[in-house]
């Protein structure tokens, strides 16, 4: 029981931080002047904010049905954003986060892997990739697959070392 609680707190922490950070990052990217204002991302940004709000609502909700509705709402906004920009790794990551929170481990891990695929080797997304591997670690733990969890954690650590050294 205690362990589950701990895990869910950890999950909450990671996801809220991630959502906030990514929304801010996007806002920054759009505002920075060296980057020609790519306004199509403003539509994506608005949808990410919608998703983030729905997600927060879901976290606070105690009624399981309404909780699930709020998470699906978040997922729907993210899928809508993907229709506008299917290659934005942040959107895939957030979708993975929503599924992880719902305990849909397999789907969460797959979505995070997809996010990593679109992140490629771009230094801009190093941090996002670390998050993705952490998310996969949690998903593997959720599935009770410790081998997979260990491997994913190693990947996260290797990336983090490469980034902060």
């Amino acid at each position: 029981m205690n362990q589950i609680n701990k895990k869910s707190i950890l999950i909450k922490f990671i996801l809220i931080i991630t959502l906030i950070v990514t929304v801010e990052n996007l806002a920054l990217a759009a505002a920075s002047d060296y980057f020609k204002e790519d306004s199509s991302s403003s539509a994506v940004k608005a949808l990410l904010i919608d998703a983030s709000n729905a997600y927060k609502r879901g976290m606070q909700e105690t009624d399981p049905v309404k909780k699930n509705q709020a998470f699906e709402q978040a997922a729907a906004s993210l899928e809508r954003a993907l229709r506008i920009n299917p290659r934005q790794p942040t959107i895939w990551h957030n979708l993975a986060g929503v599924r992880l929170t719902q305990g849909d481990w397999m789907r969460a891990a797959n979505l995070a892997t997809k996010s990593n695929m679109h992140a490629g080797n771009d230094p801009k997304y190093y941090e996002l990739r670390i998050r993705n591997w952490m998310l996969i670690t949690l998903a593997c733990e959720g599935m009770g697959d410790m081998t997979c969890a260990r491997e994913a954690r190693n990947r996260a650590q290797n990336l983090a070392q490469a980034l902060y050294q």
Binding site: E72, A76, E79, L95, N110, K114
Partner: peptide
Amino acid sequence: KPLQRYSLSIEE
């Protein structure tokens, strides 16, 4: 009233 959503699902 929403009845059902067919959400995006992927599998590597």
